[in-house]
Nucleic acid binder design. Structure first.
Lengths: 252, 252
DNA sequence: AATGCATTTTTGTGATCACAAATCCCGTTT
DNA sequence: AAACGGGATTTGTGATCACAAAAATGCATT
């Protein structure tokens, strides 16, 4: 007896949302060069849609800080600086620490199992030297924790912050990863969730973020600028010289 | 010799921005009834513009959580619940606490003077029983502190949170205000800024937010819903019975 | 009077058009 | 060779139109 179509959580199929998702994905994967100018018509052409949904998607991304708008109404990919990254680090420590503390108080047994599984998969990918899967599983691990906190507004804010720091997380490989105490920290975090120890959960998450983003901040050049790493599919070579137009977003 | 028009800080004069500002203002002043459906054409009609800028403004506000979107693509003013308010409380304590700590490390003498002046003006308005000016000056006080922190991303996030809690801050009057240790707390905050005591600054700000929002959360009914207070110009009477359409946004 | 169903109206979405501001281009001047 | 200037092009903005999904309405049936 099919009475309603939408399976409670109706998905947004609008073009606007698809464009938004595409741009978000391209940003996260580092397919945009910092400072690159992004024109509405170009995006519309590449994705095969009209200006209308592109405008709405880009406007939203500007509001979220994922793109920035010149005074003269043109949209660019923001450059990352050490100062900005340190600001994001401190904000993320607060919010993701808070989310972890809440998760410690609210996580169900099955949610904790999912978090533990993600932690295992990180180790597997890392042992294989598969940094792409590694990154994806790290994201899964973090957001599994935040989902367990059941704080929708908090989760939305954290997603916005990941959108801004995402393109630079490649820089953690391979230098930071090998020297990192990541697995042990995640283990302690999971234990904190199990024992409902909110303070410890917050501390482990905040420390993890501090170490990772401080490492990236130290990669800034003498002007304080930070260049993103090229997207690293397994064994892929760097594509172009730095600063060149690296945008090759393609329609699905 | 007029060589450039824009005085470094070019202002956005687009209709989209004006619509955004109007809606934001109307929300903050409590001119929307929670749960009220908001149609694009209605806003466009009231403001005398076409659908295009209205769509972009509303989309942005939805992304910021100031409006919410039904699965069936209609936009509503979100209802406030105790749970949501407590979530916002905890987030605000973290972020505004962080901003206060940063302000303690970075505030200049003249910035502190401005903060102190806002604190004085709060007391003046409060002694006159002028709750409208009171609220405005409280906002000025807070954002003067956050501006001193010089953390643009953090400030943007905080503004988004105020947009969501704003309509309910009227509920602090007059009950909470009279019983509050607000002035003393603000005084201690200013002292912390002067002595560069980041920890104390964070504590004072977080405590202030906790007390205020906990008070409002306790006003929830048995279902956890919180109704906003009517906008209170000096001595203005409550306008309509709760739940009625309270939207009388007018074009400038 | 309440319910089910077809029709009408409302409403958000996406494409297209017109326009002005910003940018680019290229020839000229100093 | 660098700086200037004016016209051509590009680009974001806002209005309008067509359309489909959703909501509201009216009517017949139980």
């Amino acid at each position: 007896m099919p009475h309603t179509e939408t399976p409670p959580d109706a998905i947004d199929t609008s073009l606007r949302q698809q464009v938004y998702d595409s741009l978000r994905e391209a940003l996260t994967m580092g397919r945009f060069a910092p400072g690159q100018k992004v024109t509405f018509r170009y995006i519309a052409g590449v994705l095969g849609v009209s200006l209308t949904p592109v405008r709405e998607a880009l406007r939203r991304l500007v509001a979220e800080g994922a793109f920035e708008m010149n005074p003269n109404r043109s949209v660019r990919v923001p450059r990352m600086t050490r100062d900005k990254l340190l600001e994001l680090r401190d904000i993320r420590m607060e919010l993701e620490g808070l989310a972890s503390a809440k998760a410690a108080m609210a996580a169900t047994r099955s949610q904790i199992a999912g978090i533990r599984r993600a932690a295992r998969e990180i180790i597997v990918a890392r042992n294989r030297g598969d940094s792409a899967t590694d990154r994806q599983k790290v994201r899964e691990f973090h957001f599994s924790v935040y989902a367990a906190a059941r704080q929708p507004t908090l989760q939305r804010l954290i997603e916005g912050l990941w959108l801004q720091t995402g393109p630079y997380m490649n820089l953690l490989y391979p230098g930071f990863i090998s020297s990192s105490r990541g697995p042990a920290g995640r283990q302690r975090l999971i234990e904190a969730l199990q024992t409902r120890n909110a303070t410890a959960a917050r501390r482990e998450m905040a420390d993890d973020i501090r170490r990772a983003l401080s490492y990236v901040a130290d990669l800034a050049d003498e002007n304080g600028n930070i260049a993103p790493a090229a997207p690293t599919a397994a064994g892929e070579r760097r594509r172009r010289s730095a600063g060149a137009a690296a945008f090759d977003l393609h329609a699905n």
